[in-house]
Amino acid sequence: MISIAIFGFGAVGQGVAEVLLRKRKQLESLIGKYKVVAVTDSKGSVVDENGVELSKAIEKKKKGGFDGEKTLGVIESLDFDVAIEVTPTDVNSGEPGLTHILKSIEKGADVITSNKGPLVVAFKKIKKLAEKKGVKLGYEATVGGVMPIIKLAKADLAGNDIKVIKGVLNGTCNYILTRMEKEKMTYSQVLSEAQELKIAEADPSYDVEGIDSAAKLVILANAVMDMDAIFDDVEVVGITRITPEAFEVAANKNYTIRLIAEANKEKGFLKVSPRLLPRNHPLAIEGTMNAALIKTDLAGDIVVMGKGAGKYETASAIISDLVEFYRKR
């Protein structure tokens, strides 16, 4: 029996819980029996060593959240095999996720996370500790949502040197740029539309200033390119200064504009900036999609694309890590 603890119960945490409930039969045929022994939010937790009733926990969360023991107390007092860490991201401190992850690993639990902050701040430290403790670390959900890039690079492209990754890693920016291009609207017009559609946050700076893309780029650079990167290594330019005319002028030369995150091991730089792309370029994708172009020494160029964000999309990436960890051989 696999004991799962879910730390953070926002959209992603609830999405994971729903999938664990709804697809129990399918998942148990892959990994065997499981139970969720704890779910926590910023205020408290629901804990049951015999298995939390997830539907009731979701109900309770909707009515205002949990009480009782806080996450750190749960980590200290409860036994679990795997922590699913899905608290909100803070790319400056990495907290509270960083402490949750380190404490869980210390205890000998495997960790799966969608939280970029801890990996941006302390990738090496987390990885070393996980190796020392002999536990598994899954973070497919941190980059590109459902677009499979970490496992693709680590497993399917094993043995390759990844020389360059260029990607559209932020669905919000891509949505805004696509709408500006199609509807000839200004940046601020499209931004308010995106906020109304909940594609952009009330404070959009994390997305539109390129910070989210840069955080993902740092994770990719460390995880699959061995570049030993930190956030400050990334040169970051966002999309706020792009004019509606820019798309017309670009179109005359058959170009479009996208926010591209590039990790270039050959030339040794990390950069997030708006770039001109030929309109038929594989990264010239539309809407909230994410895509990445991976340049390797053996396999040549590989392109992946998929939904960049969303409750179930992110849950899918987390579940894929879970299945990879515990798949019955």
């Binding site: 792009i242 820019a246 270039n264 900036s273 708006p274 770039r275 001109l276 030929p278």
Partner: peptide, 9 residues
């Protein structure tokens, strides 16, 4: 000024 460079270096 914002410089938007082409994707292919």
């Amino acid at each position: 000024l914002l410089l938007v460079e082409p994707i292919n270096e």
